[in-house]
């Protein structure tokens, strides 16, 4: 059964989060331009070194309080999301409403990304910030319904129960739509791949257009951390948590997280940008009825079982 880990395990969890960030960045570099894994190993470290050394930038009449708070928040939010994830039999926060916790943390990103774009007092980041809110208005309900499906299947909002319920049959089998929608929403709140519109090249870098140095590093690191957090959360929700043969449960959790993470990272090379003014209609008119059907199917399964 899942137990609450002692507080000293927190640095370990954070270390795992950061290590997976580096792995994701390395994988992304390896996919870019086919330079192979060997050439890619250095890339994340070179980027980090470059941004630590680089001079920071400010703009005239900016709002440093909001700007810097927003930039730091992405990483903080990702870490707080990871807090409720059960790694095999251990979790830092065994909350009875872990699913809602994840949802509340992801909503903090609305504010975080918006104030990052607003704080620079520059036109392109400001437009990027508003694009993110438009994107968030489109994906948030989808994410909520995707989170509710496994909770409904397990009859519990506690991740440990959701994970335990899947012994034998993973929820990804009975809730494929919810799983796909969840992954899409993770991409969306991580500003990754097809959902990178708020920081897109068409806006000259958007929210990030005026940031350099450590400030930029924290936002970029935060994006990877959010991808990792999303991937880690998908494992207890849909992929049976630590269940698996031979290896200890905690390792299975990590392995599954890495696989989902690789899938998410690879999306960046595969798809063009889904611009928010297009995504809105798709999400509301096609996406929401689709996930609601998924929830209906799950509730019928639950009724049939009880």
């Amino acid at each position: 059964m899942v137990e609450q880990a002692p507080a000293w395990a927190a640095p370990l969890a954070l270390g795992l989060l950061l290590a997976l960030c580096v792995a994701a960045a390395t994988f992304d570099a390896a996919l870019a331009a086919g330079r192979g894994l060997a050439g890619a190993l250095r890339v994340p470290w070179q980027e980090a070194a470059r941004l630590v050394v680089q001079q920071r930038r400010t703009t005239v009449a900016n709002d440093p309080l909001l700007w810097r708070t927003g930039g730091v928040s992405l990483l903080v939010v990702a870490a707080l999301m990871v807090a409720v994830v059960p790694w095999g039999d251990w979790t830092l926060l065994d909350s009875a409403v872990g699913v809602v916790w994840f949802n509340a943390m992801d909503v903090l990103l609305w504010a975080a990304v918006w104030i990052t774009g607003w704080g620079a007092n520059s036109a392109w980041p400001l437009v990027g910030a508003h694009r993110f809110l438009a994107q968030a208005l489109s994906y948030e309900l989808l994410l909520m319904f995707a989170l509710i499906s496994p909770a409904l299947g397990a009859g519990s909002l506690r991740l440990a129960d959701v994970q335990a319920e899947q012994a034998g049959l993973w929820f990804v089998v009975t809730m494929p739509v919810a799983f796909v929608v969840f992954c899409v929403c993770v991409l969306a709140f991580s500003l990754w791949g097809p959902f990178a519109a708020p920081i897109g090249a068409d806006l000259g870098g958007g929210v990030l257009a005026e940031s350099s140095g450590v400030d930029r590093l924290l936002v970029l690191l935060g994006r990877y951390a959010l991808l990792v957090a999303g991937a880690a959360f998908a494992v207890p929700l849909f992929l049976g948590g630590g269940e698996g043969p031979l290896l200890p449960a905690v390792l299975w959790s990590v392995v599954k997280t890495v696989l989902v993470l690789g899938l998410l990272v690879a999306c960046r090379r595969r798809f063009a940008l889904l611009r928010p003014e297009r995504f809105a209609e798709l999400a509301w008119v096609v996406g929401i009825p689709l996930v609601l059907l998924q929830i209906l199917v799950v509730s019928l399964l639950v009724l049939g079982r009880s």
Partner: peptide
């Protein structure tokens, strides 16, 4: 491209 240098979107990202 041959050297693997990335392109910057703007001056804040540039060396």
């Amino acid at each position: 491209r041959a050297r693997g240098w990335p392109r910057a979107d703007g001056p804040a990202d540039a060396d």
